Each structure stands twice: as structure tokens, then as C-alpha cells.
Simulated assay, not measured.
Amino acid sequence: MKLTAEQRITLHGFNNLTKTLSFNMYDVCYTRTKEEREAYINYIDEQYNAERLKGLLIHVADIIGAHVLNIAKQDYEPQGASVTMLVSEGPIEGENTESSYDESPGPLPETVVMHLNKSHITVHTYPEYHPDEGISTFRADIDVSTCGEISPLKALNYLIRSFDTDIMTMDYRVRGFTRDIHGHKLFIDHEINSIQNYIPKEIKELYDMIDVNVYQENIFHTKCKLREFDLNNYLFGYTKEKLTKEEQTEITESLKWEMDEIFYGKNLTYTS
């Protein structure tokens, strides 16, 4: 929703609303042997090391219009990485800040509109594996928290396209309140009924989606699971032609079961 000058509400002082987008993604892989599992974990650690994740967050900061104050990054042993970024406020000289009111999925190119205050962006990664069933997973959690008119939802398009992911979980929440010039409290400053409104159509067509929204609390939750399944995308270092038909069926069932449990957020039980 883009507001015109006549539609905007004049605020008393700074916009104190805090808008937080939590973007959580999962990658699932079948690793038959200990050696395959170790190779997959090493690949993930290299592909999503702290330095590369830092670059991803810098792009996010540019998209939402943030000036980076400080970056802390860490690669962990035996696996995983974290990056935390603090950003600051202040409109850029010569920029048209009207676009900060445009609640949209945001661009893929980097576009700086406005710097932010009391805001942060973080990413943490969690490679892990099943002890005996050949399933390895990689999870990345990204949190974008901003104050003011501009929304972290602008980074959603870029985040989705930055990961080739099987499952996504997204949470968006607006906290606190700000006041207009008459002292009236505002607990949200834009219209929203679903995070899906900010996901491009061509992306939505790829996923099954579930919403759980608490409108009176300004809490919005969407989770997505990839619709199409190609076993070759889940094998590490070889293709399904290397497997018997029975092995293909067994591995496919195991992978789909894993993804369903992650998607529904609970352990599922087989029924005869």
C-alpha cells in the first residue's frame, strides 16, 4: 500500500513502531554414508560461511534502506555460522523518502531509501543430521527488525530468491505503538492481512502455503513447502540412476516424511 501525501497520518515525533520479519528456511538432503554426510556438512559450511552471509545481510540492509554501524560474524566448530548487524537512522540527502511508505515485496536490485535507528539484522545457520536414517538438514534463521515507516517486508523477495529452499517459515510482527499529533495511539501504520501479499506470484505457484494470523495482535505467520519433488535434487554427489527402484522409493518416502514433519511442526506417525 502506497500512501499519498493527503492520506498520511502526521505523527508526533519519531515512529516508534518496531516491525520484525523472521525468515526461516530448510534444505533437506539424503546422505547414504558417513562420508557423504560429512561432505554435505562441509559443503553447507563453505556455501553459507560467515563471510558470505555477511554479504547477504549487507544486501538486505541496502534494500530496506539501512546504514551499517557494526557487524559481528563467527564461524563455529564443528559447523554453523552467525552474523549480527546493527544499523542506524537518517534520511539520505536528495532521496525521495515517499517510497518508504510503500509496503511492497521490495526490489531485487539494491535500493537505499532511508537509514534506520535502533534496528538490527541477524542470521544463524544450523546444519544437522539424523543419527541413523541418512537425512541431513540445513536451517538458516534470518531476523530483520526495523523502526520507523520502512518495512522489513521489502527484503522478503530478495531473501526467498537467495536460498534454493524446500521449506520456508515466515513471521511478521508489529510491536509497540506510536502517536499522531493529537496523541492518539497507532499500533500499526499499514494494511496487511497476510505475508503472502508480499510474495511474488511466480514464487507462490511453487509452494503449498499455510497461514496462521492473529490480526488483533498484529502477528502474521506463513509457512511454505515446495510442491514439486525431484529425487535428484536431494541426492548429494550422484543421481537416482545409481539407485534401484526400491531404493528410490524408500529414499523418496523418507525425504517427504522429513519435509512434512518440518512443515507441520510435529512428529508424524505411520498408520497402517
Score class of each variant (00 low, 15 high):
59 H>G: 05
129 Y>F: 12
72 A>K: 12
45 D>M: 04
132 D>G: 05
158 Y>V: 04
158 Y>P: 03
45 D>P: 11
143 D>M: 11
94 G>H: 10
147 C>M: 15
134 G>R: 01
80 G>K: 01
71 I>E: 09
166 D>A: 14
103 E>P: 01
154 K>T: 02
84 T>W: 12
120 H>I: 06
136 S>W: 00
156 L>F: 00
46 E>W: 05
116 L>E: 15
63 I>G: 02
71 I>M: 02
124 H>M: 15
141 D>F: 02
94 G>E: 11
118 K>W: 11
47 Q>S: 07
105 P>S: 10
74 Q>W: 09
36 E>V: 04
104 S>F: 13
154 K>G: 00
102 D>K: 03
155 A>N: 05
120 H>A: 13
43 Y>R: 06
54 K>E: 13
141 D>I: 05
58 I>A: 04
137 T>M: 08
57 L>D: 01
116 L>H: 06
147 C>A: 13
37 R>Y: 09
64 I>R: 01
63 I>D: 10
92 I>S: 08
105 P>E: 09
112 V>A: 14
99 S>Y: 12
140 A>F: 03
48 Y>G: 01
165 T>D: 12
42 N>P: 04
111 T>M: 07
52 R>E: 02
122 T>S: 13
67 H>A: 04
75 D>N: 10
103 E>W: 02
122 T>R: 04
136 S>A: 15
40 Y>V: 01
83 V>S: 09
54 K>H: 10
155 A>F: 03
42 N>Y: 01
44 I>M: 14
118 K>I: 08
137 T>E: 08
